[in-house]
Design a binder for these strands. Structure first.
Length: 593
RNA sequence: GCGCCUGUAGCUCAGUGGAUAGAGCACUUGCCUCCGGAGCAAGGGGCCACAGGUUCAAAUCCUGUCAGGCGCACCA
C-alpha cells in the first residue's frame, strides 16, 4: 500500500538523521522517533517538525544549528520532494512539499474508497468491548444512550485501525436488583387484582412496572396469587427482566447499536464459574477469610483496601460475579478488555484492575472509559430527572424526538469524561445551528452536485484524468490537506479511545467544503450565452465596482470543461471522506435530505 | 476526611509539551437570476480558576489552594 505523505516526510527526515549520524556530524546513539505535523499556520509550510529541538540537548548543540544541518540535507537529497525547507526559531523545521505531491492524496482516496482511513496498526489483536450493560430492570435512559453511541463508534474506530473487536452486553440478571424488580412487579400485580399489598420501600416506581405487571396479569391470570410469595416474586422477576431486556434490545436496534454477544450474569452462577474463580484466588492466597467473610486482597495491587467477595452468610457480592466475569473474558483469549462505565462507578476501577492482575494479566489488559452524565435541556431550560421517583427521560423518547443520527452526533460531540449538555430543541432543529445537519448537508450537497452533473451529461472524471495543475491551487490544496489528515485523525482517535475527534474533524471538513463550494462554481451554466465566456470571464459580482456596465448586472463566471472536471474529481474525494467519517460514528450519510 | 473527573470567549466546548490559544451558539454588518441559502463572508469578544515548580519551550507535565460534579457498603 502506498504510504501517506506525512509518513514519507517522516522517513525523509529519518534518512537524513541517519546520514548525519553516520558521518559523525551529530553524535547520536539512536535515531529518535520523528514527529511531524501540519503547523498551526499555513504560511509556515505543509509540515513542521520539532525534532531538532528535542535532539539539541542530547547532541549538545544549539537547536537552530541542528535544524539547519537537517534542512541542508533535506534540500540536497529531497530537492524533488520539497519546494522549500526552512528553519524557524527556536528550531522548527518547516517543510513545504511540491504541490503536485498532494495529488497523491486524492488518488489514494479514489483507489481505497470506503477503506481510506483504515490501517492495520491494531495487528489483528483481539479486543472485547463491553458497553451499555444496563440492568434489565427498566428502560434505557439518556445516560445509557451516551454509552451506546460511544461504544458503537469505538468499536468501528478500533476495527478500522485493524483490531478484532467483539462487542458485548453484560446482563445483570442475578442479585438484589432483580429481586427488587420481582417484588415491585408482584406488588403492582396484586394491586391489579385489588389485593392488599405494600409497595417495597426501595422498589422501582416507574410507570413501566405497572405495564409489566398488567402484562403478567394478562398472560398468567390471577394464578400467582395462590403461589407462595417467594415463587410469585421470582416468577415476576424472571418475566419482567425478560420483557425489559427485550425492550432494551429493541431500543438499541432502533438506535442502530449492535452487539456480538449478550453475556448473562446468571450463567456465571449456574456454571460454577464464580466458585471456580474464587477457588483460584484462594489458592493464590489472594482471597482470605476474616470475620467469617472472604476478602479479595485487592490492596496487593494498589486498591486502597481489600474487598469482600463472599459474605458471612455465604452469598456472593457483586464483586465476586465481576471477578468471575473478567476472568472468563480474559480466558476467552482477548488481548485487551475495554469497559465503558458510567462515571459514578469510578471507585470500582482499582478493584477490577486488581482482578485482572490477580489472574496474571498486565494491568494494561483492562482499559476503562468513564462516561460522565448527560443533562438534558430544552431550549436552554434544564430538564430535571429523578430516578427515585422513576421520572427520567428514556433513550427511546430522545430517539423518537430527534432521530438516531442527531442523537448519536450529540452524544459524540464531547469528550466522554466531561459532562454533556444535550439540547433536545437544538438537536431537532433542521438548520445551520445543528451540527449534524451541517455535516450531513455537506454530503447531500455533493451528492446533489453529482446528480445534476449526470443529468446534464457532464462526465465524471478520475483524478488521473484531469489537469493536475488545476487541482493544486490554494483553495483546492487547503481541502486536500484536510483530507490527508483524515487517516491520522482516525488513528489517534482510536488509540486514545476518543471518537469525538472524528466528530470535530467532520465539522471542520464540512465547513471547508461549504466555503469552497459557495465560492467556486463547478458545473458550467445551463445558459450557453452565460457560458460564452468572453470579457466577463472570471470576474465576479463583487469585483465589478469599477466598471459601470458590470455593476448593473451580474457577470457569471465561465467554467471551462477542464476546470469542471478537476473540481468534480476533487469533490468526489471530499464526499468519500465525509461518508467514511460519518460511517465510523454510525451516522448516515444521506444523498438527499 | 479520602479518591476520581472538570475549571479555556457572554454560553456550550475543542486544543497528541511547541510558534501569535480555536470552533459553534449568541450579538453586529453584508452575500441568492446558476451546481441545494439546511449555505457563505466580515467584525467585536481571553490574566487558559489561582500560586509555585520542571523544561530550550507549559492551557497541556508535577505540587499546593480555591470552585463545581461524582464516588467512598458484607448494595448493584
Amino acid at each position: 500500500m502506498e504510504k501517506y505523505l506525512q509518513n514519507q516526510v517522516i522517513e525523509a527526515i529519518a534518512v537524513i538523521l541517519n546520514r548525519v549520524k553516520e558521518s559523525g556530524e551529530l553524535r547520536l546513539d539512536t535515531i529518535p522517533t520523528v514527529v511531524v505535523e501540519p503547523p498551526k499556520r499555513p504560511e509556515w509550510g505543509d509540515f513542521s517538525s520539532s525534532v531538532a529541538m528535542t535532539l539539541a540537548s542530547h547532541v549538545r548543540q544549539p537547536p537552530l544549528k541542528v535544524a539547519e544541518l537537517l534542512a541542508t540535507g533535506l534540500r540536497v537529497q529531497y530537492a524533488d520532494v520539497f519546494v522549500s525547507v526552512n528553519v524557524a526559531p527556536p528550531g522548527f523545521l518547516n517543510l513545504t512539499l511540491h504541490p503536485l505531491r498532494w495529488v497523491q492524496v486524492l488518488r489514494m482516496i479514489q483507489d481505497r474508497g470506503p477503506l481510506y482511513g483504515t490501517s492495520n496498526i491494531g495487528k489483528r489483536k483481539r479486543i472485547l468491548l463491553e458497553f451499555v450493560s444496563a440492568n434489565p430492570t427498566g428502560p434505557l435512559h439518556v445516560g445509557h444512550g451516551r454509552g451506546a453511541a460511544l461504544g458503537q463508534a469505538l468499536a468501528r474506530l478500533l476495527a478500522s485501525v485493524g483490531f478484532m473487536v467483539s462487542r458485548e452486553f453484560y446482563i445483570n440478571d442475578a442479585g438484589r436488583q432483580l429481586q427488587l424488580l420481582g417484588r415491585s412487579v408482584y406488588a403492582r400485580y396484586r394491586e391489579h387484582w385489588e389485593k392488599p399489598t405494600s409497595f417495597p420501600e426501595d422498589g422501582y416506581h416507574g410507570d413501566y412496572i405497572k405495564i409489566v405487571a398488567e402484562s403478567v396479569a394478562k398472560t398468567h391470570g390471577p394464578s400467582l396469587l395462590d403461589a407462595s410469595l417467594d415463587e410469585a416474586e421470582t416468577l415476576c422477576a424472571q418475566l419482567a427482566s425478560q420483557m425489559l431486556l427485550d425492550r432494551i434490545k429493541e431500543d438499541l436496534a432502533t438506535f442502530g447499536v449492535e452487539f456480538d454477544s449478550w453475556f448473562s450474569e446468571k450463567c456465571l452462577h449456574t456454571a460454577g464459574l464464580i466458585q471456580q474463580s474464587l477457588d483460584e484466588l484462594r489458592q493464590k492466597r489472594l482471597l482470605i477469610e476474616e470475620n467469617g467473610a472472604w476478602w479479595f486482597r485487592s490492596s496487593e495491587f494498589g486498591d486502597e483496601k481489600d474487598r469482600v467477595a463472599q459474605k458471612q452468610d455465604g452469598s456472593y457480592t457483586y464483586l465476586a460475579a465481576d471477578i468471575a466475569y473478567h476472568r472468563q473474558k480474559l480466558e476467552r483469549g482477548f488481548d485487551t478488555l475495554i469497559n465503558i462505565w458510567g462515571a459514578d462507578h469510578h471507585g470500582y476501577i482499582p478493584r477490577m484492575e486488581a482482578t485482572v492482575q490477580a489472574f496474571g494479566f498486565a494491568k494494561e489488559a483492562l482499559r476503562i472509559v468513564l462516561v460522565q452524565m448527560v443533562s438534558l435541556r430544552r431550549g436552554g431550560q434544564k430538564i430535571e430527572m429523578s430516578k427515585r421517583a422513576g421520572e427520567f427521560v428514556t433513550l427511546r423518547e430522545v430517539i423518537d424526538e430527534v432521530g438516531p443520527d442527531a442523537a448519536k452526533f450529540f452524544f459524540l460531540m464531547r469528550r466522554a469524561d466531561t459532562h454533556l449538555d444535550f439540547d433536545l430543541e437544538l438537536a431537532k432543529q433542521q438548520s445551520s445551528d445543528n451540527p449534524v445537519y451541517y455535516v450531513q448537508y455537506a454530503h447531500a450537497r455533493l451528492a446533489s452536485l453529482f446528480r445534476v452533473a449526470q443529468e446534464r451529461q457532464v462526465p465524471l472524471p478520475t483524478v488521473q484524468g484531469v489537469d493536475q495543475a488545476l487541482l493544486i491551487q490554494d483553495e483546492e490544496l487547503g481541502l486536500i490537506k484536510t483530507l490527508a489528515q483524515y487517516p491520522f485523525v482516525v488513528e489517534s482517535s482510536a488509540m486514545a479511545l476518543e471518537p469525538h475527534r472524528v466528530t470535530f474533524y467532520l465539522q471542520e471538513l464540512a465547513a471547508q467544503l461549504h466555503a469552497y463550494y459557495n465560492k467556486n462554481r463547478v458545473l458550467p451554466s445551463v445558459d450557453p450565452e452565460r457560458n460564452a465566456g468572453d470579457m466577463g470571464a472570471n470576474i465576479k459580482s463583487g469585483a465589478s465596482e469599477n466598471t459601470a456596465a458590470l455593476s448593473q448586472e451580474r457577470i457569471y463566471e465561465s467554467i471551462p470543461p477542464d476546470l469542471t472536471a478537476a473540481r468534480l474529481a476533487l469533490l468526489r474525494q471530499v464526499q468519500t471522506v465525509i461518508g467514511n467519517g460519518l460511517a465510523i460514528l454510525g451516522i448516515s450519510a444521506p444523498d438527499k435530505m
